[in-house]
């Protein structure tokens, strides 16, 4: 295929007689290299998946502390028992109310705070530094902190707000109160994610429409919101999924009570498996919660994918 060339250039190299071969790595070993790096993580993953699988197996047994000697397979009767029990459905209702209300309130507040912080102001730049403090405290410790404040006799809330001996953790108020604490802890999470998103938006479209004399509200609704949507959705996904399995601060504040008013699914599972030592029943609760989380996750992630594609289009 070589065409005519200046003679001293294309001099054909005579094949060197039996040169020492360079060290070669066979193809299968080259292909295995990334797997080799991932093997430890894979091992850990398997060791974590093992209890998961075990948990699923438990749902088919009658495994409890009282009959460890004579465990037998009971088929789907755990599911039957759980799905027909009022306790379970109350827990589902509580969990969903908790997750929906919490996520909605935190999203609205978080987006609002992000937008307020995005507007340049001296006070804002100071606040931004301390915004994340509640988020970084352990939710369990936050639960302790709020329990001190909720105390109806000595609590500072009733004193400051002049509410006398208002019972923050009574049967009609407890759910509201644990949601309040969640909002206190996790609104900053939504806010900093959305704030980072807003800051990464291109400024040109806003400048252009400001020149065109568009109102602030119009810019927000038509430009900012569609472009921010993916960031908001990431925050919503994280919050909603975490709320479905909420445990820490709720357990510290109320341990699920009074009665079952704040018994979320994970608290119910905790009571069944750890407090009453009925592992199979607890596992069944968790299995059903896991299914709920899984379905929700798939749905939300597909919504996120669509929003990201649309936002990419909006920025063009």
């Amino acid at each position: 295929m070589t065409t005519t060339t200046s003679e001293h250039r294309a001099r054909q190299e005579p094949s060197p007689p039996e040169q020492s071969r360079l060290p070669a790595v066979p193809a299968w070993r080259r292909r295995l290299w990334p797997y080799f790096l991932a093997v430890p993580a894979l091992a850990v993953t398997i060791f974590i998946l093992y209890p998961f699988a075990l948990s699923a197996w438990y749902t088919l047994l009658d495994y409890a502390a009282r009959n460890t000697g004579s465990v037998s397979v009971v088929g789907l009767s755990n599911f039957q028992q759980v799905l027909t029990s009022a306790t379970f459905w109350t827990a589902v209702r509580t969990t969903l109310v908790y997750a929906v209300v919490t996520t909605a309130v935190e999203t609205v507040l978080g987006v609002g705070i992000a937008l307020l912080l995005y507007r340049a102001s001296r006070i804002g730049s100071v606040f931004e530094k301390v915004l994340i403090l509640p988020l970084m405290i352990a939710p369990a410790i936050a639960g302790v902190l709020w329990r001190l404040m909720f105390n109806s006799q000595f609590g500072v809330l009733n004193h400051v707000l002049g509410l006398g001996s208002f019972d923050w953790l009574g049967s009609s108020t407890a759910l509201f109160s644990v949601i309040l604490v969640d909002v206190w802890i996790f609104t900053p999470f939504v806010a900093i994610l959305v704030l980072a998103g807003v800051r990464s938006l291109p400024r040109e479209p806003f400048e252009a429409s400001a020149v065109d004399g568009a109102s602030w509200f119009y810019m927000f609704r038509r430009l900012m919101l569609p472009m921010m949507w993916p960031y908001i959705l990431v925050a919503v996904i994280f919050r909603f999924m975490d709320c479905l399995k909420i445990f820490d601060h709720v357990y510290v504040l109320t341990a699920g009570g009074p009665g079952t008013t704040t018994t979320t699914l994970q608290i119910a599972a905790f009571q069944n498996s750890i407090v009453f030592s009925n592992y199979s029943l607890g596992a069944t609760y968790m299995f059903l919660l896991w299914a709920l989380v899984f379905i929700t996750a798939r749905y939300l992630v597909s919504v996120l994918g669509k929003a990201q594609r649309r936002a990419a289009g909006a920025e063009d």
Binding site: L22, P23, V25, P26
Partner: peptide
Amino acid sequence: GGRDMEGVQPYH
């Protein structure tokens, strides 16, 4: 240099 490079790593 007349030597087949199949499987020879870049650093060789």
